[in-house]
Simulated scan of single mutants.
Amino acid sequence: MVAASPQTIVLSGYYGFRNSGDEAVLQAILTALEEEGRASGIQIDPVVLSIDPEWTSRTYGVKAVHRMKFAEVRNAIKNSDGLISGGGSLLQDATGLKSIPYYLGVIKLAQWLGKPTFVYAQGVGPVNRKLFRPFIASVFRRCDYISVRDAESAELLRSMGIPGGDIEVVPDPVMGLKLPEDGVATSADSQLDSQAGESAATTGAGANAAGLPVVGVSVRFWTEARTELAKLAEGLASLSRRKPVHIRFLPFHSPGDDEASRFVMEQMGNVADSGSTVSIAAETEHPQDMLREVSQCSLLIGMRLHSLIYAASREVPLLGISYDPKIDHFLGRVGSVPVGTTNELDPQIVAAQAERLLTEGEVWRRAHSAKINTMKDAARLPAQNIAQFLRSKG
């Protein structure tokens, strides 16, 4: 039976920016908290810190406040029963100097206000500036629960003096994300928007209306010269000549990924003579829409971490292109290695490996299914631990 007194939890993360991967993290955490709270006999009411609280509230049906308005953030935490920080790569300084101080500051504020704090499946690092390390250690030592999404993050925290026994290594929350099975409304299912402007809706998992296997591609800009994207385009063009396919670009973070996708499409040239087709997905409103897109692929070639996580969770064979250690870490957990990196990518290896996986998809699934299912179950551990903590304090 659900407790009469709800437990309010504030969620801090990279939310409201409409990055499909981070929005998927939020959706996965919200779903896990609701289900594990119900299993523990408590009602958990989330309040999300978002850059666009109106959009977040509308999309997920939860309360949200502006993450950059200190008074709103402080008030939300003050009136809560605890704070969750995560998941995603929040505590890193590779993309700038503001991320670590912001997310540590939110946790520290909650601790000053006497609230329990929980770190939810974060990817910690890289932390290249040593001045950040003692601050991370000081804040994390006061957290009531710490979980990270890979062993490398745990090792980094241990090097900062956090006892290893206080750190739980779990999969990324998105491994536990599901497609709605009964009448749960998200935005409308994405329609194929071909390069020629024609629509070709998919007819089933892994094939488009013409019966071609769908190869999902998730790219982003990384190197200034864009050589890795040009090489990927060459590999995709080679694949299309080896085997007729439908290459479906999946922008995870607009507008940048959309622009990167169109750059690769232009570099590929015309593949219609080989019987292949190319399209790009429209911007999605809800992460489950993109998850549905990935579930309809026969193969996923991805730079974005969460494109690879989506594929693994749906047991779609995948090829990862590494631009960051987090890609290598995740691929290692599912028993794979990158097909190349942004510094070294061989187009013919991409084409050959893609053709192999399109032919041996069932072999790949049999080899990886057990490990993927174990990761899905483990992805719920943080929500279970947090729900049990709240119940014990209630």
Rank of each mutant, 00 (worst) to 15 (best):
V65R: 01
R74G: 10
L83S: 00
L26Y: 05
M68H: 14
A76S: 00
L83I: 02
L83W: 02
M68V: 12
P53V: 13
N79P: 00
A32F: 02
V47E: 14
P53Y: 10
L26Q: 05
V48T: 00
T56W: 04
V25G: 14
I42W: 01
D81H: 09
I44V: 06
K78H: 15
S50D: 00
T59D: 14
D81S: 05
V48E: 01
S57H: 11
V62L: 11
I51E: 15
S85Q: 07
K78M: 07
S57L: 04
G37D: 04
D52K: 07
T56N: 06
N75H: 10
N79A: 14
A28T: 03
N75K: 08
G37Q: 02
D22R: 00
I84S: 04
M68R: 13
V73A: 13
R58M: 12
A28K: 03
Y60M: 07
D45E: 07
T59N: 09
G41P: 01
T59V: 12
S80H: 07
S40E: 13
S50A: 05
V47N: 03
I29D: 04
V47F: 02
E36N: 15
I51L: 09
V62A: 05
E72Y: 06
G41R: 11
I29T: 00
W55Q: 10
H66E: 08
L49D: 11
L83D: 03
E23A: 02
D52V: 15
V62R: 08
D81E: 09
A39E: 03
T59P: 12
V62F: 02
W55T: 10
E54Q: 08
I84M: 00
D52S: 10
I84R: 00
G86R: 13
D45I: 11
S50R: 03
Y60V: 06
V25C: 09
V62N: 03
L26D: 03
P53W: 12
W55D: 15
D52L: 11
A39K: 09
E34S: 13
M68I: 05
V48L: 08
S80I: 02
G86T: 02
Q43E: 06
E36G: 11
A39S: 06
V47Y: 00
G87K: 13
A71E: 10
I77W: 04
F70R: 08
V65C: 01
I44Y: 13
K63H: 09
G61S: 15
R74F: 05
I84D: 01
G37C: 02
E36R: 15
D22M: 01
G61V: 08
